[in-house]
Amino acid sequence: MQKEKNKKQFAGITDEVRCPFCDSAETQREANFGTTLGYAQFYCFHCRTPFEWIKWDEHAPESDLPSFLSIKI
């Protein structure tokens, strides 16, 4: 299904992204960046509304970042 297929497309977003307007999970990533680097753009097929989603760090794979960013001080 399109929804399932698109959920895994964007590295860093592994959780289900729900529409902030109707709470539907029938969403699709439209672009990796929105108004800032920290946002991705999505589209909701249920209420037919585009929305921006913040790439919270806990959703992003730390393994893709250099190890110096994980050093505990």
Partner: peptide, 12 residues
């Protein structure tokens, strides 16, 4: 540092 993580992901 939090914002720079996005820059590193973009660069890599």
């Amino acid at each position: 540092v939090e914002e720079e993580k996005h820059h590193i992901r973009n660069a890599q």
